[in-house]
Nucleic acid binder design. Structure first.
Length: 414
RNA sequence: GGGGGGAUUCCCGAGCGGUCAAAGGGGCCUGACUGUAAAUCAGGUGGCUCUGCCUUCGAAGGUUCGAAUCCUUCUCCCCCCA
């Protein structure tokens, strides 16, 4: 996976912290040379607003960007409102359906809100790439196309894989890296940040800049954070993500479900702590002197604190310990009011949002996944899918699976 | 343009006239164990008014007592040749 390496040479301390989470900076020495000029650099980061939510995986590069901003450099954000309509083929096993302009616009708004949690947007330049890509005419497109060869494009892992497997590759997809590179030309980027899988796209930007008579940008790539499953790159569509907007308690819990093996990566990429601390934790984990569970709890607290605040993180941790380590009922349990008393259990579970379908509810009940917490700590397993649930349950707590709870409040009519 | 192959339940992938709601694996869910980790074990995984009924096998028609399986047309994908 992502290795912990910082470009050779340069002032270790500052550069080290500037590049926490970075996998590589290239070409060699370029970034150091730029930094040595002592002027604020134009640091570019592009985002295609293809989904409404950003998650921890996106935050890796954003943290890098934040560090550049804090060091006094000029952040230049590109909202890829045009490129989003094509779709970045990077990491895609299949072509994806294009988005409409209005979907993109809606996503872009929520993106900026979320970016504001990490970046000082008032000090950032924000561009939409439709500004220059939309009006481009065929002559311009052809000029761009002339910058790359078929062999170069096919050299890319994912294109090559898809091609070999006999999957479709749209011609417009091949154009994508060139468009991203054009963005660098338009905003005269000194540095572009991106995920480790963006290497190719970042390099294309350099080529286009050179052709346009500009100094080619330095590129910094960041590690790809694996999802909560510990294997696949974090992604909402796989369902292994943690959204930045995730509530504190849930966020804490999701971090705790990450497999131990992924911990070092998560510390490097998601903790947003200093280089020294990260190194120390990784070393202790490797040496066995730090219990993985404790390292994970520290991490979970750090992450929640990062996107909410320290107080919320403390509360989330208490709730977690109480619920999962002491196996007590959670403190906050939603009340079900006006629930249809007398209704059979399975449909009731659906009504209360605790099961997806009646059949699903039946399965849960049959398999002993549905319990009712009565007075004085009594627990009763409800095993009859169609047993009627009457008003005598008021005040009791219904538990489905490990984490779904509801307290019976005022009953309504069935 | 010519020839060939293919589209199956969340994914991969069997099935090739009835015994198919459809093998197997993955994922996911529930239970046991536990550190909401890993590994492991057991069960489940279309819907419903659930020992039965209804809807699914790219789309629409057709043959048949009966079709995911046969025929026709259509849509999409891939390969080879040009």
């Amino acid at each position: 996976m992502a290795r912990w390496q910082v470009p050779a040479g340069g002032a270790v301390g500052a550069l080290d912290d500037l590049l926490v989470g970075a996998v590589d900076a290239f070409p060699r020495g370029r970034l150091e040379a730029l930094l040595a000029q002592g002027r604020p650099l134009r640091v570019k980061l592009g985002f295609d607003p293809t989904k409404p939510d950003l998650h921890l995986g996106h935050a890796v590069v954003l943290e890098g960007l934040r560090r550049f901003q804090q060091a006094g450099h000029q952040v230049v954000l590109i909202i890829g409102d045009f490129t989003a309509r094509i779709g970045d083929p990077t990491g895609k096993e299949a072509a994806r359906p294009p988005l409409t302009a209005s979907e993109v616009a809606a996503n872009a708004r929520t993106y900026l809100e979320q970016l504001g949690r990490m970046i000082d947007l008032d000090k950032a330049e924000i561009h939409h790439n439709a500004t220059w890509l939309e009006p481009m005419d065929l002559a311009g497109v052809l000029r761009l196309l002339g910058q790359a060869t078929v062999a170069q494009m096919l050299a890319r892992d994912n294109f090559a894989r898809r091609h070999e497997r006999g999957d479709a590759i749209g011609l417009h997809e091949l154009l994508y890296p060139l468009l991203q590179g054009q963005d660098s030309v338009e905003i005269r980027a000194d540095v572009e940040l991106g995920g480790d899988d963006q290497r190719f796209n970042l390099l294309v930007g350099r080529d286009l800049q050179a052709t346009a008579g500009q100094e080619p940008q330095a590129c910094v790539t960041y590690g790809l954070l694996v999802g909560t499953d510990g294997h696949e790159k974090m992604s909402k569509s796989i369902g292994n993500d943690i959204p930045l907007t995730c509530p504190p308690e849930d966020m804490y819990g999701r971090v705790m479900s990450v497999p131990d093996a992924a911990l070092p990566d998560w510390w490097r990429l998601a903790s947003a702590r200093g280089a020294d601390e990260v190194r120390a934790v990784c070393a202790d984990l490797a040496a066995g002197s730090l219990h993985p569970r404790d390292a994970k709890m520290r991490l979970a607290r750090a992450i929640v604190a990062r996107f909410h605040d320290a107080e919320a993180a403390g509360i989330a941790e208490e709730a977690f310990v109480r619920r999962f380590q002491e196996r007590a009922l959670p403190l906050e349990i939603p009340d079900a009011d006006a629930w249809p008393a007398g209704m059979p259990l399975s449909p009731l579970l659906v009504k209360l949002g605790l099961a997806a379908t009646t059949s699903d509810a039946r399965r849960l009940v049959t398999q002993g996944g549905v319990r009712c917490h009565g007075p004085e700590g009594t627990v009763e397993t409800l095993g009859e899918p169609m047993m009627p649930v009457g008003p005598e349950r008021v005040g009791q707590i219904l538990q489905v699976g490990k984490r779904r709870f509801v307290r019976f409040g005022r009953p309504g009519t069935a």
